[in-house]
Design a binder for these strands. Structure first.
Length: 847
RNA sequence: GCCGGAGUGGCGGAACGGCAGACGCUAAUGCCUCAAAAGCAUUUGCCCUUCGGGGCGUGUGGGUUCGACUCCCACCUCCGGCACCA
């Protein structure tokens, strides 16, 4: 801890004897705003030191709606603690802020009130901005961005066109999810249990022409590059892995000879091909009408298809309900044995997985088994347990390890099932009837929305030239002003006829603008790069700035974004890296997902009346108390239940530290807080405790996010100072120890309670705590002359012994055996073994 | 069903295989005060106690070990994610 400056001005020792957070916090906030303390330069700018390591600390940007809630306070408190810690450990820390300002809530509000969504959005942004300052979050405000400004979405549009040029953005007709309530299409990721993620309305499937990003091209890299991440929560990786849903198997072609049609299917079990006894198509399958046209089955099939189309995806998805379907009166040929097997249409086959058709193997797939039972179809076992054990009645046998061999499978009989997968696939390849294949659950990302409040898609449709990108010098395509924000099945932008009608940039003929806007997840898939060079009008960012700061060293946010945002952003970074705009493959090296704050065990909601409005609480307790409480309540990745009594406790602690600081500043000589390390006595005990706390807090930061134990260590230090202070005042070593201990407590609490930390530290040292280096624990000080040995008999604690730290094994054992409490338990028993752990413990085993 | 995560006092939570319950809340008592608030101090897992101490305790049942909240096996409960994915 460096120090020494002239004695502090009088005002720095508060005149009141009560900790007044409002006064303290306002003063320091003014200093940080005035001096722009948290701004950090880019390479080449004044103040940039290439020798310093960089740290990009980022919390997910807020969606500005109304006022910030307690979850915001948590995520930014946690992030700020990390940012402060890294700064004082010598890094250039970039810690920016922005707003994810496009989106439905503002637009729905606009529809109701007729007021432009920009008005409510910008009012909300102002409120967020104000509260972030009142919370004392150390933000580099020079880098602030908001996704709804033309200066920002100009570059969102630029990225769209980059993807378009590379064939990664395309327009296509496909069955897509449509939310009738919000009157827009949704991405697969935004459909939860068959319902719209935003409003909960059951979605329906419609065939529409829409814009997609080709994220499926990146499926394998999105999986493989988990290896490039430093530290992500295991469950987030698992969720993404499941979502991408890679499975290996084979594509096998079944042929309908009558109509000369080939039906490829995907299977993970080519080893069971001989067990395929029927064949099923999804109701949405394109060839269906061709198969039944003019046959007896036509009407029944049409009815069945219409019926399933009416059903919500939600009901169809249940595996509880009985299998339904209709025979087509056609057969296909099983390529391995030439068998003609009957075809069906059934809604348990999904159009958007595999090829929308499957070979049914009822003996070895439960769903096929259920269908076969319902329709009385043959069930042929082709894989048997090697040990001859029975398969339960009514169940499919799905094992396929080397302990199972093939039967009823012609030349493949006896081949172990695990091996048969490869062998049969090779055979299919040789025969030209199939090949090894990989299938994914992941679909391309549907990005167009028929809504107003988003970035317009920068494409012009020309009768002669087709889809033409808006030339770079004409960006941004500004959102037009309209009268009515309500969606009517097409985008509200379509009503702005003057805007829609334009000139084709290619041929100069008449063109019409694309009227859909982009999914807001597009905006938030690259904001963390714009922060690095936010003022740039020539490019979305400079490679130099991006190379300097990327990747994000610590990303913090809610687990609800585990799939959507985090996967889209990974995709963007990979695509941009492929185009040469970035030098990294992954945006977020370390990810931390914070838990929710509940109250009375339930999620906070207005209807439940258990909301903790941060502004009210900051007014009442001050920001430092709230921030520290949130970090103290429990491990930040877990959910935690809010209790006002707990807040009182933290307030008490901060107030104790403030009063200690003031008292020590008054009653001891201003000067070097460290001084010479006292040899012995309470002064030494206190200094040692301070070093212990430094070590503990430092380890808790280094190990991750163990803020609750870090704060408790500072509490212990403060408690120790209170316990010892009255005996230490007035002697040189005692005064110095008190100053050191108190300044250390202020220094260690700084990442959580910056205003108070700065205040107390300045009272005692005249220095600004954020300009000092993070303290280092003197491990040597922690060693003491005497140690306490724990004495166990048969593993149970029986005595404690104070002894010289350097006492030998025999001496300690001798002492232990002689102890009265130990004696009682040794009496009349035979000592079998004695365990000695130097400096710690003795265990005497008796019989 | 599959994949994650978690079970410790009245509560939130601590514990490199070595003193279970740090720290905080709550509660009780005392000091200060005319009084209250604030503050300060002590106690606060359960049971028994002759007040020395003793017994029991980390979801359940086993195991490894001198020693297990911690490691291994089996199970129970709760939370989250995915789910007719071929």
């Amino acid at each position: 801890m460096r120090s020494r400056r002239p004695a502090p001005p009088v005002r720095k020792i508060a005149a009141v004897d009560r900790y007044d957070p409002r006064e303290v916090e306002a003063r320091w906030q003014a200093v940080w705003a005035e001096e722009r303390t948290w701004e950090v330069p880019n390479p080449g700018e004044e103040g940039f030191d290439p020798a310093k390591p960089k740290a990009y600390v980022l919390e997910m940007l807020p969606y500005p709606s109304g006022e910030p809630h307690i979850g915001h306070l948590k995520v930014y408190s946690v992030g700020d603690a990390i940012a402060h810690y890294r700064r004082r450990n010598g890094a250039h820390v970039i810690h920016p802020m922005g707003y994810d300002a496009f989106g439905l809530p503002a637009e729905n509000h606009a529809i109701k009130t007729g007021e432009h969504p920009r008005t409510a959005t910008e009012a909300s942004i102002e409120s967020f901005r104000k509260q972030f300052r009142e919370w004392g979050i150390s933000i580099d405000w020079s880098r602030e961005v908001s996704t709804h400004t033309p200066e920002y979405y100009r570059w969102t549009q630029w990225i769209f066109l980059q993807l378009f040029e590379k064939g990664l953005a395309y327009r296509s007709e496909a069955p897509v999810h449509w939310c009738p309530e919000d009157a827009t299409v949704l991405a697969n990721e935004q459909v939860i249990d068959g319902r719209c993620e935003r409003c909960g309305t059951p979605v329906i499937v419609r065939n529409l022409e829409q814009w997609f990003f080709r994220i499926t091209d990146y499926a394998d890299r999105l999986l493989a590059d988990f290896d490039l991440l430093e530290s992500w929560p295991e469950h987030v990786i698992t969720m993404q892995r499941n979502w991408i849903g890679r499975s290996e198997g084979a594509e096998v072609v079944f042929r309908c000879e009558e109509l000369d049609l080939d039906f490829p299917v995907f299977t993970t079990r080519p080893d069971t091909l001989f067990g395929a006894t029927f064949f099923v198509l999804a109701p949405e399958h394109q060839q269906l009408s061709k198969l039944v046209e003019g046959t007896d089955a036509e009407e029944a099939v049409r009815d069945y298809v219409n019926e399933t189309a009416r059903e919500a995806a939600e009901e169809r998805g249940s595996d509880e309900r009985p299998k339904t379907g209709v025979p087509l009166g056609r057969t296909v040929t099983n390529p391995v044995n030439g068998e003609q097997i009957p075809m069906f249409v059934a809604d348990y086959v999904l159009m958007d997985y595999g090829t929308g058709a499957l070979m049914a193997v009822p003996a070895h797939d439960q769903r096929d088994h259920d269908f076969a039972t319902a329709f009385d179809l043959p069930i042929r076992t082709v894989v048997e347990p090697a040990d001859g054990s029975e398969v339960p009645e009514g169940e499919a046998y799905t094992e396929h390890s080397e302990d199972q061999g093939l039967v009823n499978s012609g030349e493949f009989d006896g081949t172990p099932a695990s091996e048969a997968i490869t062998v049969v696939t090779e055979w299919l390849e040789a025969e030209g009837r199939g090949e090894a294949a990989v299938n994914y659950r992941l679909r391309d990302w549907l990005v167009s929305r028929q809504r107003y409040w988003g970035a317009p898609i920068p494409i012009i449709n020309c009768e002669d030239c087709g889809m033409v990108p808006v030339p770079d010098d004409q960006l941004p395509v500004k959102l037009p002003e309209v009268e009515d924000y309500a969606p009517k099945g097409k985008s509200p932008l379509a009503a702005a006829e003057d805007w829609v009608k334009t000139e084709c940039p290619k041929c100069g003929g008449s063109g019409r603008r694309e009227t859909d806007t982009m999914d807001t997840f597009v905006d938030s898939s690259w904001y963390f790069i714009r922060y690095l060079d936010p003022q740039n009008t020539e490019a979305a960012w400079s490679r130099e700035a991006a190379d300097n700061w990327m990747p994000v060293d610590q990303y913090i946010g809610g687990v609800e974004h585990a799939i959507l945002h985090l996967m889209y952003a990974r995709f963007f970074v990979k695509a941009l890296a492929d185009m040469g705009h970035l030098g990294v493959q992954e945006p977020f090296a370390n990810l931390f997902t914070q838990g929710m704050i509940t109250r009375d065990g339930a999620k906070m909601s207005k209807s439940r009346g258990n909301v903790v409005p941060p502004a009210d609480y900051v007014e009442r307790y001050g920001a430092d108390t709230l921030r520290t409480y949130i970090c103290f309540i429990g491990p930040p990745d877990r959910d935690a239940d809010w209790r006002d009594e707990g807040v009182d406790g933290v307030q008490r602690f901060l107030s104790r530290l403030w009063r200690l600081g003031r008292e020590v500043a008054e009653r001891t000589e201003f000067g070097e807080p460290g001084g010479a390390t006292p040899e012995s006595g309470d002064a030494r005990v206190l200094v040692a405790k301070a070093h212990w706390a430094i070590g503990k807090v430092t380890r808790d930061f280094e190990r991750g996010f163990q803020f609750n134990t870090a704060i408790s260590a500072v509490m212990e230090l403060v408690n120790e100072a209170y316990r010892l202070k009255d005996g230490l005042y007035g002697e040189g070593a005692g005064d110095a120890a008190l100053r050191f201990a108190t300044a250390t407590a202020a220094s260690l609490i700084w990442p959580f309670a910056p205003h108070l930390g700065a205040e107390v530290y300045e009272m005692l040292t005249g220095d600004r705590v954020w300009e000092t280096e993070w303290p280092e624990a003197d491990e040597g000080l922690l060693a003491t002359d005497t140690v306490t040995y724990v004495v166990q008999v048969n593993g149970k604690l029986r005595a404690r012994l104070e002894t010289e730290a350097d006492a030998g094994e025999e001496d300690v054992l001798e002492l232990a055996r002689g102890d009265e409490g130990v004696q009682r338990h040794l009496d009349g028993k035979e000592v079998v073994k004695e365990v000695f752990v130097p400096g710690k413990l003795v265990n005497i085993v008796v019989r």
